[in-house]
């Protein structure tokens, strides 16, 4: 388990972290999610010992490591741009941590072979990083970090530099790996989908502070504020509140809570359909329906419909008037 308590970090006048405290459960996969500049990477680097906090403490598995250098924190760290040792073969890269610990060569070789099989790079031992694809390099970096059997695995935007399809593949792979290896893992990402898919627990950061922490489902369904709601998925503004596009109900007739709107455009996205609406008062929003729902409604562009939020969500989504402008749906 990892506990960071009261961590602050400034770069000149810029406050990267302001009095941040989190507890990360042993064996869990936690995502630090936030926009760039939110402090998520800084927090990860503080846990790793690669940054020294101005204030606060870091405890890993019951040991206060605040003043312990990264070498002696028993961590594995994976960088966004792989940080592969370019002049070493895959074998030497993965075996590096064991070699500097002066383990016998036979033991290192066996461990390297085992890990390369786990990460799907068996047979690549003699290659150089320059002969690997981005995805392969990152899997090599993961094997390298796991070779020293760290107490915690820290991943700094590990898939950020990869193509979308490789990223999706590696995500699924990392999830399976975590189920096998079960090492406490902290993942930094700005991609809410990645966080939702991978993590048991998501910590949303913004401007150096934690906005909310919890299970992905809880954060999505019960966001603490408009920032979290906006960051975890697409939102539409209806009246004074925010609502998810798929939580909008379109109906042919008005009722007590509905608002009149005109259908501006219908976009078919396969199973889902996006209906873009011009509101009678002012403004526009997009509702997300299934194809089936649209067929039942029998609406066309130019028609007048009545829109309301699906049962109850409307009120819950607006706990308080938000001070900050709402983020656009994150990519």
């Amino acid at each position: 388990m990892i506990a960071a308590t009261g961590v602050s970090k400034h770069y000149g006048d810029f406050a990267a972290l302001r009095d941040v405290s989190i507890d990360i459960e042993a064996g869990s996969l936690t995502a630090l999610l936030g926009p760039s500049g939110s402090g998520k990477s800084t927090l990860l680097r503080v846990i790793a010992g690669l940054e020294t906090p101005d204030a606060g403490t870091v405890v890993i598995e019951g040991r206060d490591v605040t003043n312990v250098p990264p070498q002696r924190r028993d961590i594995g760290f994976v960088f966004q741009h792989y940080a592969a040792f370019k002049h070493m073969t895959v074998r030497d890269n993965v075996g590096f941590g064991l070699k500097v610990r002066k383990r016998p060569k036979a033991e290192i070789d066996a461990k390297v072979d085992e890990l390369l099989t786990i990460v799907g790079l068996a047979g690549y031992q003699k290659r150089y990083p320059s002969q690997l694809s981005g995805g392969q390099r990152q899997r090599m970096a993961l094997a390298r970090a796991l070779a020293v059997e760290p107490k915690v695995l820290l991943l700094d935007e590990p898939f950020g530099a990869l193509d979308a399809n490789v990223r999706a593949e590696l995500r699924a792979w990392l999830r399976r790996l975590h189920e096998e290896v079960h090492v406490t893992t902290v993942l930094v990402t700005h991609d809410q989908e990645e966080a939702m898919e991978l993590a048991d627990r998501i910590v949303v950061l913004n401007a150096g502070e934690i906005e909310q922490a919890g299970a992905p489902r809880d954060l999505y369904d019960r966001p603490a504020n408009e920032f979290v709601m906006g960051f975890l998925g697409p939102v539409a503004r209806l009246g004074d509140g925010l609502v998810r596009p798929h939580d909008l109900v379109l109906q042919p007739d008005p009722d007590g809570t509905s608002i009149e709107a005109q259908v501006a455009r219908i976009v078919h996205l396969g199973f889902e359909v996006r209906v873009e609406l011009e509101l009678a008062g002012d403004g526009a929003l997009a509702a997300q329906l299934t194809r089936h729902e649209l067929e039942q409604l029998e609406i066309a562009e130019g028609d007048i419909v009545y829109v309301r939020p699906a049962g109850g969500r409307f009120e819950r989504a607006t706990p308080e008037p938000a001070p900050a402008p709402v983020e656009q749906p994150a990519a």
Partner: peptide, 21 residues
Amino acid sequence: DEQEQAAATLGASRWQTFRRI
């Protein structure tokens, strides 16, 4: 300095990092 940081997280001392990386 990313490779050097990676070496540090893998347990290499400053001298080992300098020598090997």
